[in-house]
Design a protein around this nucleic acid. Sequence first.
DNA 1: ATGATAACTATCATAATGATAGTCACTACG
DNA 2: CGTAGTGACTATCATTATGATAGTTATCAT
Lengths: 169, 169
Amino acid sequence: MQHTSFEGMSCPIARSLERIGEWWSMLILRDAFAGVTRFDEFQKSLGIAPAMLTRRLKGLVEAGLLERHAYSERPPRHEYRLTARGEDFRPVLLALMAWGNRHFAPEGESIMIVDRKTRERADPVLVDRKTLRPLVGPDYVVTAGPAANERLRQRLAEDRSLDFTGGVR
Amino acid sequence: MQHTSFEGMSCPIARSLERIGEWWSMLILRDAFAGVTRFDEFQKSLGIAPAMLTRRLKGLVEAGLLERHAYSERPPRHEYRLTARGEDFRPVLLALMAWGNRHFAPEGESIMIVDRKTRERADPVLVDRKTLRPLVGPDYVVTAGPAANERLRQRLAEDRSLDFTGGVR
DNA sequence: ATGATAACTATCATAATGATAGTCACTACG
DNA sequence: CGTAGTGACTATCATTATGATAGTTATCAT
């Protein structure tokens, strides 16, 4: 049974999930950020079935997050590297890591973000680049953008715009 | 065929995905942030099969992101509200939204984050709460934490610590 | 020639998925 | 009273995805 595609939705979250929202995809990206490039490396680090890995790598290549680079002609051999779009996914993974560390690490963190020089632990917060004020809080709000359809505009015109997103496609 | 559980992994990203990584889960959370609380509302806004919605809501309740609140005794009726843990997921969704807006909105953004007062568009960046320096960049690094196992420590002791995460469980 | 390696591909039994109808416990209305 | 509507699921079933595992191919090394 094919799962419902989010491709027809205009919400950026839905569109993102269409490309990275399948089981295994984000863990593959995590490992790509860790420098894993080859098929057998991904397979070993993830403990994933080869057919599954092939499918997911293909999907990530098609979505423009990874690209295949030949590293041997005879025999033909490829490695998988992050594209600029893939690199841009880093904050999402870091935010997910921070949330996981806060809620699912009763024995302490296994990985964390530290200052490169001082080794002091970082506490991630999402802010606006210019004002440096936190986006989670009273200063900022999610609202309809230039490409919002009428239904979304109405929805966000209600009190719910105080909360978050549209709850729509 | 049951998909592989990430529960046995120590990585916080894997642990997070174990709880929110299934198809539909994050979109349900998106809508919960938008104030959606009732079963039929979720169903309408998402266009999801009822049996699927039941399963996913149950999973999110069990994972501690949503909780059921009775809003009617006769007939018994429940709504689903975000827990503190669920609320804490907001930065992840905002980061995902920002990434989606940057890469998958050729027609412009349908939703975006703006300053509540000035309506000026926000540009999200992940920083350290204290230093306000970006976590993506030369200042910060991902490293083994107190609960890291030996394999992860070794892995991160290599040059790969310059990149990102461990590429391990 | 044999063996090892890397990158897949093929096969198959099991589980998940989505579509859709049904169920139940109400409330509202004529 | 009966009927209809509503909301929150549950049950059923055909289709697709999943993971386990063996196989294939094209090398290279001995």
